[in-house]
């Protein structure tokens, strides 16, 4: 299992490689990137803040939950970046491997969806005329 929180560019190829397994016929990856628009506003860049020890602990917890739900998972790799990211930068990579493809799609989606609900990382969008913490208010 590869779990990491980094403050520099994510080596996507290395994350994919960490998910490889001779017992797997499928490697499935999600790559989250910085988009240039949000709710119709032009986004200039994003600032990600993390609570590092808890973020790493919770990332590992999410990966372990996925292993319980999909016992056929061979490898799990999750790397999230924090700091200031520009448009197009990779913010997160999730990669999993399983013997057959259907499980790999499901497990990968579960991991990114759960990560977004529980891992203490916060995203602040910077626009040309201000900033907003994403999803902070109802």
């Amino acid at each position: 299992m590869l779990i990491d929180l980094v403050d520099h560019a994510i080596d996507v190829a290395a994350v994919l490689q960490a998910a490889e397994s001779d017992e797997a016929g499928a490697v499935n990856a999600f790559i989250g990137t910085v988009r240039n628009r949000s709710d119709g506003r032009r986004v200039v860049r994003l600032h990600y803040e993390a609570y590092p020890p808890m973020a790493v602990h919770q990332l590992r917890r999410v990966a372990e939950l996925a292993q319980e739900k999909w016992p056929m998972l061979r490898q799990v790799a999750v790397v999230h970046r924090h700091g200031t990211l520009e448009i197009g930068d990779v913010a997160v990579v999730v990669a999993v491997s399983t013997p057959h493809r259907a499980d790999s799609f499901a497990a990968c989606q579960y991991i990114i969806d759960t990560l977004k609900e529980v891992v203490p990382i916060w995203k602040k969008e910077e626009y040309e005329d201000g900033t907003v913490w994403v999803a902070a208010h109802p």
């Binding site: 609570y51 913010a91 990114i112 609900e117 891992v119 916060w122 913490w133």
Partner: peptide
């Protein structure tokens, strides 16, 4: 201590306590 705490959990001086506003990673 890196886990979400239930409402009734008692806090102690040596605990590592943090406030977690709505998360938005990914």
């Amino acid at each position: 201590n890196n886990e979400y705490a239930a409402a009734d959990v008692a806090l102690h001086e040596r605990d590592e306590i943090a406030l977690i506003p709505p998360v938005s990673g990914g």
